[in-house]
Structure formats: structure tokens, C-alpha cells
Design a protein around this nucleic acid. Structure first.
Lengths: 194, 194, 194, 194
DNA sequence: GATGAATGAGCTTTCATTCAT
DNA sequence: AATGAATGAAAGCTCATTCAT
């Protein structure tokens, strides 16, 4: 990775943090620059607008999440086990790199106007969605999961996990998030099983 | 309802529309005033800040949704039927008054800083959450649903439905939302049943 | 004239001064606001962009110049006399309200990008050009001036007068500008006479 | 011409194009560098500031125009013929190298602040003005043109030609510019003849 | 209650210029 | 000679809120 690419990535990482913490509109370019000990002007040498930066950040995030799901997809285990592993990895990321999940939920999903131009449809999140699709379709094929519309399953999976992280973020959950892994995995499996 | 209360409500309704469509930060007070054929100065006679307006709007929305769930809760039907009715009513509101669901998902859930002061915890959404809790606990008591942590169930319910409306809003769903009612109701019931 | 219209006009007048003195790009909105003892934000209540302000300013100028030429056009005097009066009035304005002529020459004529959108062709200067056209065509009709393409005559008239004011502005002219009125009037008349 | 001088000239030529097309302030140093496939840093090895570049460009342009007028001045033909040839050569340059005339009219004449320091008076355009002066004074001496203040004649000549090119640039002229050569030459001669 | 002109801090973005390599 | 990342001041513009009328 070139020096310039490294710097781009460090900008994205800080941006994920600040955007997810304070929101897209409340995070200013000077905020980001300052967090990087970098001048505002120079930041624009790497991303030509705040929107482009936000879009590149969601692509980066989506690819990261996708790669983690892929690691599970390629394992030779049952769908039930995969579901549990996906829940685990999702919550692990939510704990270790909360900015990624939060960015997904609070910035990407909620600021349509920011992502409309460069990210219409699922253009910027295909890295992630594709892996979920692969998981689901192969589990249907193997007969472990019921054959239903993909989006019925996707909405369940992602809405559920996202919802839990939201509740956690709001400090509403009485327990640590890991506490719910078993319940959630079972619920999802029961909902989708053949 | 007094004339003043009526005007307050009409302001909230327009605000729900504009906030949900353009986002909290992209919607300006002059925008709202213009949509109401009203001066900005006068608007401040009804709500003393933009944040207060947003907070009152979520309370209004939560109460509305809660009252609809209550209508179902008081019926003498099985938990399975209630689940289906809740899904139906949620999607019906998403179609008839999309600003309400969208406001919930895209404004309330994603702009923590706006709601932090007046709506911490679930202070502004208790009208809705309480009814879901009543539904769940009575169904557990009657033995129809498995006894598990409420939030495991709540996250499933609300994350799932919200997720589907998100996907619809992004124009990603290949079918009308009603198409998914059956699948979703079954999935939720399977996930939660005893 | 309403209070708001009066303020609009005062903004235009100051803008003519500053734009003509320092150029469009070197004059900032804060400069204009400060010169008017007015806040930047409020200035935008009157003109919604710097470009719109510049465009309104050229329309205002063009109409003013046009009205002065019209006063001459309606007089019952020879074309030769009208030419002299036009030269006189042009130079008088150049002395009394130099910002107008300078704005025309240094801002309007030289910043195509600024006027492209709202002032294409002669949309914003028709007030002035029309009166010159009326002068020329009626003088041709009466047989005093040679019948030739209007723009050959217009270019002579306006290029010449503009050129002289330029030279004056550059402090190149060894004499006061009034000194040249006679020579110039004669030259124009000789150039155009039948 | 050394390699360095050649590069200097190529920078000037591109700058004439960009400055005349987009204006001095809207043309950036990176724009110029990119058009030359050259780094900004290196460009500063040739011209130590944007203003110096603009000033050198007007000197270059003025000398070029002057040399063309000189070619006419040294011919043994009447003043009337010289006038026509000057008009022709001016319009020919306006067609073949429009950036030069446009630079003169739209950049040099209209951005006083840029040229104030290095080009006061006619310091940077003497190459051109001197040749016009030589033309005029020798034609007066030979009795062909009326003896009048030089600037009365210069303003006519240059204002007129500049005005026509302006009109052409604005797409206002209904005819090709060559169409006007005859009319204009006659008008100028009539205006100035003894 | 109703109006909308006024404020001014703060936003995103640009760009001439420098300098380590 | 040549590169281009880095700087930082300053630009145009926005908008929640106030207040005289």
C-alpha cells in the first residue's frame, strides 16, 4: 500500500469514528483534519468533498464486514452454526470497532441525501450484502433453511442485529450485548429454518 | 382541542414530513414555516427551538403508533394473530403516513444529539414501547411465546419491521411491502413461539 | 418605493462602487456588507447570490444609461447634435458616477462567467442598447447618417467612448476627458454621416 | 532560444488561453500546470508568481501585436490602405489567436489590481501602442490625417476594434467579423482624414 | 398572535505558494 | 529541474434565533 493510500485509509478510519459519534452534519471537515493533525486543505487532496469521503467510508466498511462474513461462508459447517457465527462476528465488530456498525446504522442508513449520488441502490454496500446473500442461498440449497424471498430473510437478519446495536447504543439494554447472542441466534434460526 | 393545540399539531405534521424527507439538519425552520404559510417568528411562539419541535414530534409519533398497537392488544385473539395484525398495521402506517415511520427510523434513531437532552432512554417513545411490552408479556404469560429477555424479542420485532421499511425506502425491495406480510409474520412467530 | 426596494437599491449602488473599483472577484460579500453597515446574512435576504447581485447591478446600470440616452432621443435636434449630447452625457456620467461606466467596462464586459447564466446575449443591457439603436435608426431614416449595419455603428460609438474612459481610468490621458468631447463628436459624426 | 526560454513561452501561451477563456481569477496555477503536463512546483521555477506570469503574458502579447503593426507601418502605402490593413490584421489575429486579443481585452484591461505593480501606465503595452503612434503621426505628417490629439485617434481605433471583438465574443454579431472590415475601415478613415 | 428583517458564527471549499525529496 | 503533498487564510453562503413593529 502506497503512502498516499495509507493516509487515505487513516482519514477514513477517523471519519468513521467522528461521523458515527457526532453524525454526518455535526462533524465538520476541520474536526476531521484536526483529529488527524492535518490541514483542512490537505484533506481535500485526498477526498474531493465531504460527501465523497462519506461514500468511500461506507464502501470501506461494507467491504470489511463482507470479508468477515466471507470467512464464515467458506467454512464447512451447518447453517445453524453459521448464523451463530455471524451474530457473534457482528457483535464483536460492534464492540471492537463500534464506529463501523454505528456508521452503517446511523450515518449510511439515515442520510439518504448524502449517499444518493454515488451510492444509489446498494452500490456502496454490495460487499456486505452479497455475502449475506451467498450465506442464505447456499443454506436454502442445502435444505437447511426455508426457501423464501431473500429480502424477507435479509430484513430479519440485518434489522434484528442492527436493532440490538441501536438499543445498546441508547443504553437501553440491561445486559451486555454478548448476553443476547444465544437468544438471537436461536430466534433467527427458528424463523428461517426449513 | 384549542386552536393553539390544533396549530401545534399541524406544525408537527408538516415537520414530520419535512424532517423525514430531507433529514433534521437539512430541513430549516424557514422551510417548515413556508410549508405552513406562516412566519418563522410565529413558529417560535409554538415551539421554542428546533430541537423541542423534533422531540415533540417523536412523542406524537410514538403515541400514535402505541395507540394502534393498543387497539390490537385489547382484542381477544391469539398471539400469532396479534403478530400478524401488528405487522399489518405497521406496514399500513408505513404506506399511509410514511412520514411517521420514516421519522422514527431516520430522524429519531439517527440523530442522538438532537434527542439527548429531552428524550434520554426511552422517555419520548414509551407510548409505543410500552404497548409492545404489554403484547409480549401477556403472550408469554398465556404460554404462547417463549419466555426470553424482552429486548431480544423487541429487537427482533422492531429491527425486522424497521429494516423492511428501510429497504422499501431505498427502492431495493422487488415487491410491494404487503407482499412480505405473510413471510414476516411467520418468521417472527416461529422465532418467538414457545 | 418600499423600504425593501430602497435597501436593494442602496446595495446595488455600493456594489457598483466596490465591484468597479476592485473587480468582481476581489470584492467580497463581507466587503459589501461592511460598507453598508449590514450583516452578511442579511445581504443574502436581498440578493440570493453574489452573481445575482452583479446581474441586477448591470440591469440597473443599463436602465440608467438608457434613460439618459432616451432623454436625448426624444429631443427635436439633428443627429450631429444628438451625437455630441450622447458623448457629453456619457462623459458626464463617467465623471459623476464613474462606478457605472467602470462597472460596465471592467466588470460586465470582462467577466463572462458571472453573467453567462442570467444575462446571455444582451438580456441585461437591452435598456441601453435599445436606445442607441433607436438613435441610429431614426438618424438613418432621416437621411443624416449613412445606412450601414447597426453593429458597425454601435461598435464605433461604444468602443470609442469606452476606450476613452479606459484610457482615463489608466491615467494615460494627458487632458481632462471633457477636452476630447469636440474631437470625438466630430470623429463619430464624420465616420457615420451620409 | 534556450530550452528554458522555450518552456517559458509555452507556459505563456497556455496561460493566455486559459486566462482569456476563464478569467484571471478563475484560472488556477494547478489548471495551468495540468494543461502543460507539468507540476505546480516546477511552474514556479519559471515564474515566481501568478501576477508576474500575467504581466509577462501581456508584454508578450503587446510585442506580438506591435510587430504585426510594424510590418504594415514600414510599407509604402497610403494611410487609408494602412488603416484597412491594420483592421484586417487585428481581426485576423482575433480569429487565429483569439486568446491574444481576448487576453488584452478581458484580462489586461479589466484587472487593474493584477497589473498595477509591474505594468503601470503603458509599461507593458508600449510595444503595441508605440506602433499605433508611429502610424498616426506619420500619416498626420504626410497630410493624410487630420492633426488631432493622439489619444482621440487611439481611442477610436482601439476602442472600435476592441468593441467589435467583444460583440463577436458575446455572439451578438449577426455576421462573421470579416464582414465588417470594409465598413469599419471606411468609418475610421472618415473619422480621421484631413 | 403574527411578521420577516437582522444577526453572526460557522460551514464547506478553494488556491497561491512552499519545500522536502 | 522536477514533483506534489502540505499549508492556512479567506471565500461564498446558511440558518437558528431574536425582536421591533
Amino acid at each position: 500500500m502506497s503512502k498516499k493510500e495509507k493516509k487515505r485509509e487513516s482519514i477514513i478510519n477517523i471519519s468513521l469514528e467522528l461521523f458515527s459519534k457526532y453524525g454526518f452534519h455535526k462533524t465538520t471537515i476541520p474536526d476531521i483534519a484536526k483529529a488527524l493533525n492535518m490541514s483542512v486543505g490537505n484533506l481535500y487532496n485526498y477526498f474531493k468533498s465531504k460527501e465523497i469521503l462519506a461514500q468511500d467510508a461506507i464502501i470501506y466498511t461494507s467491504n470489511y464486514l463482507g470479508s468477515k462474513i466471507k470467512d464464515i461462508n467458506i467454512q464447512d459447517i451447518s447453517a445453524k452454526e453459521k448464523i451463530k457465527k455471524i451474530v457473534e462476528v457482528y457483535f464483536k465488530i460492534a464492540q471492537d470497532k463500534p464506529q463501523m456498525i454505528e456508521y452503517f446504522l446511523r450515518v449510511y442508513l439515515s442520510n439518504r441525501e448524502v449517499f444518493k449520488d454515488g451510492c444509489s441502490g446498494m452500490a456502496c454496500v454490495s460487499g456486505f450484502v452479497t455475502e449475506i446473500m451467498i450465506f442464505f442461498e447456499s443454506a436454502v440449497e442445502s435444505g437447511e433453511l426455508r426457501d423464501q424471498d431473500f429480502f424477507s430473510a435479509f430484513g430479519l437478519f440485518m434489522g434484528y442485529l442492527g436493532g440490538m446495536v441501536f438499543l445498546k447504543g441508547e443504553d437501553i439494554l440491561p445486559q451486555e450485548i454478548d448476553f443476547y447472542i444465544e437468544d438471537i441466534s436461536v430466534n433467527i434460526y427458528n424463523a428461517l429454518k426449513a
